[in-house]
Computed example of a mutant assay.
Amino acid sequence: MTKRVTKTMLKAVRIAAENGATDREIAELLDMSERSLYRLKHTNADLVEALKVGKAVADDRVEQSLYRRATGYSFDTVKVFMPAGCLEPVCIEIVEHVPPDTTAAIFWLKNRRKEDWRDKQELEVSDQFTSASILSKARQRAGMKEKPEK
């Protein structure tokens, strides 16, 4: 029996997806198996759209976080100190800086500018490395005489 998809269910699915829930977790939320969720997705365009919209929000959030991590950022915070001789802690508002992260920057560039940043392995194939020439060079290094060709 196919489960009826309600507006409340669609809203719950979208919110769960926005918060990074996996399909398995969403299926559990809907009290169904992951396989049943996949079947339901094939018959209900509204469910597919709710998942797509929710996951896009989560992906955008991660993308923004990765970008900020790659470029560095600052944030306001409060440091609490207990100086010697004081009876109460001292709170000071400061701006803390997180420096750029090289790994995040490389990851970002490899995915956003693949043609410039991907790990390239270009091989140039040449006919100078035939099996006969390789054997000949090996024989020379070993001090062996060349075998005459038949």
Rank of each mutant, 00 (worst) to 15 (best):
I134K: 04
Y73A: 13
T71V: 12
T8P: 02
E34D: 07
I92N: 02
R4L: 14
G54L: 00
R39K: 06
D116R: 01
I94Q: 02
N19G: 09
D23Y: 10
Y73W: 12
D31N: 09
F129C: 10
K145W: 12
R68P: 04
M9F: 09
Y67A: 10
R69Q: 10
D127Y: 07
L40I: 12
Q140R: 13
Q64F: 13
P99H: 03
P99Q: 02
R61Y: 06
R14K: 06
Y67K: 07
F107C: 05
E93S: 10
E28C: 07
T102P: 00
E93Q: 08
A12Q: 03
L123H: 04
K7V: 14
N19M: 10
V13N: 02
S133I: 14
A27T: 09
I106E: 00
A21Y: 03
V95C: 03
R68D: 06
D101F: 01
L109W: 02
P83F: 00
P83T: 11
P99K: 02
E28H: 09
A56K: 07
E28A: 12
M144L: 15
A105G: 03
R14A: 08
D119Q: 04
E96A: 09
E25S: 08
D46I: 14
F107K: 01
S131V: 15
E18N: 00
P83S: 03
E124Q: 08
D31Q: 08
M144C: 12
V78I: 14
P99Y: 02
K120V: 12
E34I: 08
R69I: 15
R14G: 04
G54F: 11
M82V: 14
A12F: 04
V5P: 02
W117D: 00
L40E: 04
T2S: 05
D31V: 15
A56I: 14
T43A: 11
V13L: 02
D23K: 05
V125W: 04
E18K: 04
A58Q: 07
V80R: 03
I134M: 09
Q64L: 15
E25G: 06
V80S: 10
R112K: 04
P148G: 15
E25Y: 01
I26S: 03
E122M: 07
I134Y: 03
A45Y: 01
R4V: 15
E63T: 14
V48Y: 03
A50L: 13
E34N: 05
M32A: 02
A132C: 10
E25F: 06
D119F: 05
S33Y: 03
T22Y: 04
L109M: 05
A138K: 07
C86Y: 06
T77E: 08
D76T: 14
C86F: 13
L37K: 05
L66V: 15
D59E: 12
V78L: 11
I134D: 01
H42R: 11
L30G: 05
K145T: 15
A138L: 15
G20I: 13
E18G: 03
N19F: 13
T43C: 12
A105C: 02
F129W: 06
E124T: 13
W108Y: 08
V98T: 05
M32K: 01
R61L: 13
E115L: 13
L87F: 09
F107T: 08
A105S: 02
T6P: 03
V57H: 06
F129S: 11
S136C: 13
K145Q: 13
E149Q: 11
